[in-house]
Design a protein around this nucleic acid. Structure first.
Lengths: 214, 214
DNA sequence: GTTCGGTGAGTGAGTAATTACTCACCAAAA
DNA sequence: TTTTGGTGAGTAATTACTCACTCACCGAAC
C-alpha cells in the first residue's frame, strides 16, 4: 500500500513487500473471491508489477493458500473464556463468546474469506474452517457437556446446543455483513438477548411449559 | 441434459431448451459461482452450442439473473404454517419451519446460489434473499410478537428471537452443506432439539434461573 | 573518495490459453 | 418459402504466468 522509505531509498525489503502483497490480496480475495480477483488487480493494489507478485508466490493459488494459512486460530479468546469457565459463570462464558463474535469479530474480511473458500472448494478451506470456527464448537460442546453432568444444564445434546448458540451468532454476522440487513439494535443488546435466549433454553431448574410430543 | 425427442425430431422447442439451459446453468453457478462458471461449460452441460445459449440470453449476466428470478418465494409453506399458527400450536409452528429448513430445504443448489450471489454482490441478490429468506423472518417475528402480547412468550425482542431461531437452522445447513461437517444425529432429532431449545428459551411461565446483569 | 562487481528488488513486454460474445450459415419444420 | 432451432469458426479482450533486462544498494579493493 504505502511506499516505505520514499526518498532515501525506493526499494522495500522482501519481507515488507511480501506482507504487503498478502494484505492487499487478502482484501481483494475477500471482496471478489478467488476466481473474481485477477493478479493484475492485486499487483496494482499492491503498487508493484505483476512480475513481482510472481517473484514472491509461484502461482495465484499459492498466494491464496498463504493468505488462508496466515490467519491463526483464536486461542487467546478461549484461554480468556477458560477463567470464566472455571468459575462456572455460564452467563459470562456465553457473553464473552457472543461478544467476541458480534462486537469484536472485527475483521470483516475473515468471514467473507471463509465463505468464499468453502464455496469455491479450496483444499485449505477445511483447515481454515477448523482453525477459525470448529475450535469454538468443540470447546463449547465440552463445556456444555460438563455443565449437564453437574446438573446445571438440561440434558440437551451438547454438540447441537453449541451449534445452535454459535449458529445464532454466525447468522447474525451473516445477515449484517453479507446480506447487509440493517441492525435495529445495538450490538450489546443483541449479545444480551442471544445469551438470555440460549441460557433460558438450556439451563436446568424450571423447564418452561414442556409438552413432549411423540 | 438429456436430449428430448431423440429420433422423431432432433429439435427441441424454444421453451424446453430455455428451461434446460436455466436448469443446468443453475447447478453450475451454484457449484462454482458466477465468475467461476464459463459459458462454454454451460453450453456443454446443456448439450448445445455456446451460440445457442446466447440466442436465448443476451449475456451471461442475463442468464444468471433469469435463474435468480426464477426461484419463487415459498408462500405455500407459510400458508401451511398459518393453520398451526391459528391454533396457537407453538411447537407445531416451529417444528414445521425447522423441518422444512432442515429436512426438505431439499434443493441444495439454492443455498449455494444465495450465498454466491450475496458474496459476489449481484444486483438481484437482495431480491433473491428477500424472496427466499426474509419472508420467514418477518412472518416469524410477527407471530412471536403476537404470542408475547398474549402472554405466552416472554418479552423478548421478536425480530431477534426470530433471527436466532432461523439462525440455528441456517447455520445447521451451512455447516453440513457448505462446510461438509458430518451429521451426528438424524434430521428429525435435530429438528426436535432445536425447537425444544428455542421454545424453552422463549416460552413464558417459568424463567430459568435468571440473573439479570447490568 | 572512487570504482567495481555482486545481489536482490523490480519491471515492460511479451506468451499461450481462455474468456464472453458474434456472425454467416445450415437444416428441419410449418 | 419463411420461420425457427441450431452451429462452426471466428474475434477482441482478458487471463495467469514468463523472461530478458534494469536499477539501487552495499562492501571491498583501489
Amino acid at each position: 500500500m504505502t511506499k516505505r522509505r520514499p526518498k532515501t531509498s525506493r526499494k522495500a525489503s522482501g519481507q515488507e513487500r511480501q506482507a504487503g502483497i498478502i494484505a492487499t490480496a487478502a482484501s481483494l480475495f475477500a471482496a471478489r473471491g478467488f476466481t473474481g480477483t485477477t493478479t493484475r488487480e492485486i499487483a496494482k493494489a499492491a503498487c508493484c508489477s505483476e512480475a513481482l507478485v510472481f517473484k514472491h508466490f509461484p502461482t495465484k493459488r499459492a498466494l491464496y493458500a498463504a493468505i488462508l494459512a496466515e490467519k491463526v486460530p483464536l486461542t487467546e479468546l478461549l484461554t480468556a473464556v477458560e477463567d470464566a469457565a472455571k468459575k462456572r459463570d455460564d452467563r459470562l462464558v456465553f457473553t464473552m463468546l457472543a461478544s467476541h463474535r458480534i462486537r469484536r469479530g472485527a475483521d470483516p474480511t475473515l468471514l467473507r474469506l471463509l465463505l468464499f473458500s468453502a464455496l469455491e472448494g479450496h483444499e485449505l478451506s477445511n483447515m481454515f474452517f477448523k482453525n477459525q470456527h470448529r475450535i469454538f464448537y468443540d470447546y463449547l460442546a465440552g463445556y456444555i457437556e460438563q455443565r449437564i453432568r453437574e446438573g446445571a444444564f438440561r440434558r440437551v445434546d451438547p454438540l447441537l446446543a453449541a451449534r445452535s448458540f454459535m449458529g445464532m451468532l454466525a447468522h447474525h454476522r451473516l445477515l449484517h455483513e453479507i446480506f447487509r440487513v440493517p441492525a435495529h439494535r445495538s450490538p450489546e443488546d443483541c449479545v444480551e438477548s442471544y445469551v438470555n435466549l440460549f441460557l433460558d433454553g438450556v439451563q436446568a431448574g424450571t423447564p418452561a411449559t414442556r409438552k413432549t410430543r411423540s
